[in-house]
Amino acid sequence: MDTFTPAGTILNGASVQDALMSARAVNVFYATKHAVKNVSLDIARHQVLALIGPSGCGKSSFLRCLNRMNDTIQGARVEGLITLDGQDIYEARQDVAQLRARVGIVFQKPTPFPQSIYANVAYGPRIHGLAKDRGSMDELVQTSLERAGLWEEVKDRLSQTGTSLSGGQQQRLCIARTIAVNPEVILMDEPTSALDPIASAKIEDLIDVLRTNYAIVIVTHNMQQAARVSQRTAYFHMGDLVEVGTTNMMFTNPQQKLTEDYISGRFG
């Protein structure tokens, strides 16, 4: 399996025209574990790319390379080239904070800061100096919450703590918080795995709406979810990118035996 994709090989469907982000021959190591092996994959504008595969297949590790979240993990090492608008994001003079403002991330579990709903959303704009005065901050908070589909539910209690919301609301708050910085790409690491079906459905609807403004990469264990929300799907197996293509093609006519087995539920 180790040589599934030799360095330099780019799978059919892995590259797209006018890609927003582009990964070439990316390898990720955690201490001794080789978590991502020679993955080359493009991220298109205004599209949702789903990363699927069994646990430990490297999909989350790959996702975390895209805004250098792996930098915060002790002993993690990333090799290869990743570009955003043609710029190498791993080059020495890259400002990591700026990169993460452009490539936001939403995690598995909702992680609101122990502050008010307002302060949670205002945090990113505040540290990046995106709002000039109180009025424009109020506006930014409102639009971000509206885009995350949470405004109607929280507009009367913006001063309550973020942790007082339900799980699904907290996750939408985290999405609002990410949107508030006005990123170009939103990474989502199993954003609904801690939520009930109704809350999950709301997030899925939201992802479809957000696509008009942002490129989205979503890691999911739920294949129905991948089929519902994404336009392109990439299948990872044991660190290798096995197959990638339009979601329609991947779910109806996969080219690889491994992909077919996983999608038809034979393992995973």
């Binding site: 995690f107 800061f113 990410t178």
Partner: peptide, 12 residues
């Protein structure tokens, strides 16, 4: 996770 959320928003 909470710290990562901060970093994920581009905080130093």
């Amino acid at each position: 996770m909470l710290k990562e959320s901060g970093y994920g928003l581009g905080a130093t």
